[in-house]
Write a protein that binds this DNA or RNA. Structure first.
Length: 491
RNA sequence: CGGGGUGUAGCGUAGCCCGGUUUAUCGCGUCAGCUUUGGGAGCUGAAGGUCGCAGGUUCGAAUCCUGCCACCCCGACCA
């Protein structure tokens, strides 16, 4: 029979895995914790890349590329940075293999030991700031607005496809500025870019906020994030933007001479999103029949499926389909005409639903006669008959409509799963029943946050930007609190 | 990294406890042919296996033992 997907209600985590594998997004590999991103999944990632890259360029950034390997000594220059990453690093210690003396296979050549080991980058701040030292002398060299698309490695103990893998793809922006204010503005600007991207392309509403000290990036003064809510009520950090202060500039001695002739340390930011967004995309919108992709990220936006009995009918439908296809392509819509005669229409319907193709057009002899098509939308499963006239505009509108509808649905879900807890018991009971974003008062200390985490397994996802200031009592300690923060269990 | 589970054809599985008519079961998929085609087609025939890998015990190992690899769940950890 067909590809069975575990229902969401039965086992959410299994449902997610089934989708990723059966929709052909990715699979596990022979290497622990590392995945193979398959062509269909990679096509979605490429669409994300294109959209983001355009947004980066539009905000004045340029792309560059830095090495995969980082000398160990670079790593230890920023104290909190190394502390944050030390436990999950892959290390290169040798550069050569040799035949085993017993003739069985090959072994590491002990004589080829590196004097200084290399760390496979878990992030690139250190190698980049070591490089920036040479790029920056004067205020005239600033700002530097560089992004790189790269892979990074974090030796995770427990992995899940896309959500947490030992190797993953991402972009990391690294900027250098003359003033603190300019760096902070950059940090927030890129956070805004991420929000726009999430809203407009992922069709995913997110909350912009600032992380607490516990959740802050190793080496940052302040970490900002966008947080999204998944269908099982768990939160997912979808992107981060860090204000790094002068930490890395001081660690790598990156100074510039100001207009006034004074030597100052440079101010820094870094920001990134990763293939984890693929996981967010799947978990935010999809259902028990398969993926639901927002049209703006769907590799195939419209699929045309012919239904015929005779060869003559097939030929006539081929012509009709080709006409429709070129008409839609003129509107920059990506169309696939699936004229395989090895599969029945019903099979194809199910297959494209599994793969999340937003719009399906079915054409048969009846349509040919009436100059109509049957249009089915993936998000609502509604079917309707469209006249051929102005089909291109109608489909274009439909795609926009679907994009918007998916976003609205996710927004409704989040609104319906946003709560307020005035006690630790309330917080816990909400977490155990529905999950979601839960606003609660907190006394502002790391100790309290830690204790709440131990009791409820929930963390503070963020303190929302522009948060309403209102006095209250911490749900754990009863100490005064000036605002509510968002708690959630998280991926 | 600790605890638990899993690994048999492309996928899902029976067999394992209690070693021996087992030339390893069944379903889906694959291939060939015919009939089909408006929601996952039917019939007939065929191909497809280092039983995760490596050792060991034994006359004999998918089955018992040891080590390793990978995956899943829980925990610890995690920008």
């Amino acid at each position: 029979m067909a590809k069975e997907i575990t229902p969401r209600s039965q086992d959410y985590s299994q449902w997610y895995q089934d989708l990723v594998i059966k929709a052909d997004l990715a699979e596990t590999s022979a290497v622990r914790g590392c995945m193979v991103i398959k062509p269909y999944g990679y096509a979605i990632w490429e669409k994300m890349q294109q959209a983001l890259d355009r947004m980066f360029k539009d905000t004045g950034h340029v792309n560059a590329y830095f090495p995969l390997f980082i000398p160990k000594s670079f790593f230890s220059k920023e104290a909190s940075h190394i502390e944050g990453f030390a436990k999950e690093c892959a290390i290169v210690t040798h550069y050569r293999l040799k035949n085993a003396p017993d003739g069985k296979g090959i072994i590491v050549d002990d004589e080829a030991k590196l004097d200084e080991e290399y760390i496979v980058r878990p992030t690139s701040e250190t190698i980049i700031w070591n490089t920036y030292r040479n790029w920056i002398q004067s205020y005239r060299d600033l700002p530097i607005l560089v992004n790189q698309w790269a892979n990074v490695v974090r030796w995770e103990m427990r992995t899940r496809l896309f959500l947490r893998t030992a190797e993953f793809l991402w972009q990391e922006g690294h900027t250098a500025h003359a003033t603190e204010q300019e760096a902070i503005e950059e940090t927030l600007k890129m956070l805004h870019v991420y929000e726009q991207f999430a809203n407009q392309f992922l069709a995913l509403p997110v909350i912009k906020g600032v992380k607490t000290a516990n959740e802050r990036f190793a080496g940052a003064m302040e970490t900002y994030c966008i947080e999204a809510l998944m269908q099982d009520g768990k939160a997912l950090q979808a992107g981060t933007s860090h204000f790094l202060g002068q930490n890395f500039a001081k660690a790598f001695d990156v100074r510039f001479t100001s207009k006034e002739g004074v030597q100052n340390y440079v101010w820094a930011t870094s920001w990134g999103v990763s293939t984890r967004l693929m996981g967010a995309l799947v978990m935010a919108h999809s259902d028990d029949e398969g993926l639901i992709l927002p049209p703006k990220l769907a590799p195939i936006q419209v699929v045309i499926i012919p239904v015929y009995k005779s060869e003559d009918q097939q030929k006539a439908l081929n012509k009709y389909a080709t006409k429709i296809k070129s008409m839609l392509e003129l509107k920059q819509i990506s169309v696939k005409y699936d004229n395989r005669d090895t599969h029945k229409p019903g099979f194809k319907f199910a297959e494209y639903e599994l793969k999340g193709v937003p719009v399906r057009i079915a054409i048969g002899p009846r349509d040919l006669e009436n100059q109509t098509v049957e249009v089915a939308r993936r998000d609502t499963k509604e079917k309707s008959v469209y006249q051929f006239v102005n089909l291109d505009t109608k489909i274009e509108n439909l795609l926009n409509n679907i994009q918007q509808n998916i976003f609205n649905k996710a927004l409704d879900f989040r609104d319906n799963n946003t709560f307020y807890a005035d006690s630790i018991e309330k917080l816990n009971s909400i977490l155990d029943s529905t999950g979601g974003f839960i606003y609660a008062h907190w006394d502002g200390t790391s100790e309290t946050e830690q204790k709440i985490k131990e009791i409820t397994k929930a963390t503070i996802r963020c303190i929302p930007l522009g948060n309403q200031q209102e006095m209250g009592k911490c749900i754990l300690t009863g100490k005064p609190s000036k605002e509510k923060v968002i708690f959630s269990r998280a991926y």
